[in-house]
Design a protein around this nucleic acid. Structure first.
Lengths: 152, 152
DNA sequence: GTCAGTGCAAAAGTTTTGCATACAG
DNA sequence: CTGTATGCAAAACTTTTGCACTGAC
C-alpha cells in the first residue's frame, strides 16, 4: 500500500477501535477483517458476498455468517458503513468514510458508479424546507445502462 | 366517489383488463381488489399490509398472501405499480399512474410525503450524460423529521 | 370444458437469536 | 478471571413454488 493509503486505513482502524473502547466492546480478528475487506476492495458488498470473500481470503479464521451480519450492523450503527438497498438485489454495504455521494446502477451488469452533485444537494434542502421537513439524510439512485454495456 | 375519481379508477381498471387480455390472463376478484385497494387508499403498502387490509375489508374472499405477492409482481411487471425499497422496512408498493415523483420519509413516524422537482430531474440527465450512462429511471429519498413529529 | 388462478403448505432465501465455548482485556 | 464475541444450529421472517381444486372465459 502507498503510505497515504496505509494512513487512511490506520486512521479508520483507530476510529473503529475508539468506538469499540467507548462502548466496552472488543476488538477481534473478525471485526478487523470485515473493516479491512471493505476498505481494500472498493466495492459494494452484500452480507453474503462479504462472507464468501472473507472465507476465501482468511480460511483459517472460520468466520460465520452471523458474525458478518452482527459486524455490519455494528458498523452501520456507528456510522462507519452505509447500506444501500435497491430493487430486489437486497442490501449492499460500503465504507462510510468517503464524502457524501450517490449511485448510478447499471440495469444490465449491476455495476455501481458513484457521483456527487452539490447542486442537487442544495435543491434537496430547499424542497425539504418547503414542506417544513427537517432533513437528516438522503439517498438517490440513477438506473440505466452503463457505457460498457451500451456497446454489447 | 366523485365522478372524476370514479372515472380515474375506471380508466385504470380498463387499462388493467386490457393488459390481462393481451397476455391471456384472467380478470379475477382478487386482482381487482388489489388494484382497488391501492387506488382507494392513497398510501404505500407492504405486501403484508396489503394482505391484512384486504383480509379485513373482504373477509369472505379468503385471499391468500401468495396471491398478493403474485398480483403485485404482475402489476409491477406491467408498470401499473411501482415499488420503493428503503432501509430495513422492506418493499412498499404504490400505484404507478401518478406523474413521476420522489419521496420524503419521516424517520420518526414513517410517514411518506411525495414531491416532484423538475430541476433535479434535469440535473440527473446531465450527470448521467457526463458518465455516458443511458438513464432509464431513478429514485430519490429524503430522510428526516416531518412537520408533525417536530412538535412532539 | 379448458386452462389459468387460487389457497394452502412446503420450500427457499435472508437475517436474527440462543447457547455453549473461545478469547480479548 | 470476567464478560463480550463467536460459530453453529435453530428460529423468525419474507418471498416463491408445487399441487390439487376452483372459477373465468
Amino acid at each position: 500500500m502507498r503510505d497515504e493509503v496505509t494512513n487512511e486505513y490506520e486512521s479508520l482502524l483507530y476510529k473503529f477501535k475508539d468506538i469499540l473502547k467507548h462502548n466496552n466492546l472488543k476488538f477481534t480478528k473478525q471485526r478487523e477483517v470485515v473493516l479491512k475487506t471493505l476498505f481494500s476492495n472498493d466495492q459494494h458488498f452484500s452480507p453474503e458476498e462479504l462472507y464468501v470473500h472473507i472465507k476465501n481470503e482468511y480460511p483459517s479464521l472460520g468466520v460465520g455468517i452471523a458474525t458478518i451480519y452482527r459486524t455490519l450492523n455494528l458498523l452501520e450503527e456507528s456510522s462507519m458503513v452505509t447500506s444501500l438497498s435497491f430493487g430486489s438485489s437486497g442490501k449492499k454495504y460500503e465504507l462510510g468514510n468517503k464524502p457524501h455521494h450517490d449511485h448510478m446502477i447499471c440495469d444490465s451488469c449491476g455495476k455501481i458508479i458513484e457521483f456527487e452533485d452539490e447542486e442537487i444537494e442544495k435543491k434537496q434542502l430547499i424542497i425539504a424546507d418547503r414542506h417544513s421537513f427537517k432533513l437528516t439524510g438522503h439517498s438517490m439512485q440513477l438506473y440505466g445502462i452503463c457505457k460498457d454495456c451500451q456497446k454489447l
